[in-house]
Amino acid sequence: MSNTARLRILGIDVYYDGYRALSNVEFEACPGELIALLGPNGSGKTTFLKTIARVLKPRKGVIYIDSRKADELNDNEYAKIIGFLPPSDTSAIIRVPIKVVEVVAIGRKPHVTWSLTKADLEKIWSAMRIARVDVFAFRDVNELSSGERQRVMLARVLAQEPEVLLLDEPVSHLDPRYQVFMLKLIRSLTKDRKLVTIASLHDINLALRFSDKVILMKNGRVFAMGTPEEVITAENISEVYGVKAVVIRNPHPVVLIEDVIEDEPP
């Protein structure tokens, strides 16, 4: 298994000003795997993704990509391999008028020096088509709905052509139709292009339905890891989220949250 792993993480510790946000995180992922990252708010999901994306620097531990140490790659080489999509609410950060195509083109940054070649333009166009934003390619991003904007941001990261796709709450602000559209799209891209995709999710049922593997986090540690059926059990959900939950099999498992557990702080 470890020979074919695209992404391998050993003993990662991350601190924010002395506060430990991740401790001793270890895992590995093979090409074509869609991994759901679950856990309550503040459990370290975003920190985990940002650390792999090199947005944050771990104090301890090693990241391997295809058995190469990540430290051996410079920032630009690394950006050709790892793509990161922040949560959709941060796309409100754009404060200047900018068109969809211009945003998507930014994804080509690691691959270009100055001008966009014909091949670059084709990749930009195909990324926009896949994310279904080509119909409003020349509209201003600030005029779009949050769901449309999130698809633009997905197109941006697809134009980057990474081998590892890190998605931080990719469906949080989407309606049910686009939640399923987005995750189906992400799943098929992961399979077709043999990507490693890690997506943090809040919806446990979406994780059950779409992921190959689930990492359940609590307090900056990996609480459980494995197939969705192994990890998503009533006991684990209760323990990690502090809620009373039942798993119904009909025939696919569905998680139903019944109540919060009162004696635990929410």
Binding site: V55, A79, I98, I106, K109, P110, V112, M153, L166
Partner: peptide
Amino acid sequence: AWSLNTLALGDDVAKSLGV
């Protein structure tokens, strides 16, 4: 020019694009 373009999408995205 390219680095400035990435900054428009926020520091996290800029960093993930190698800037």
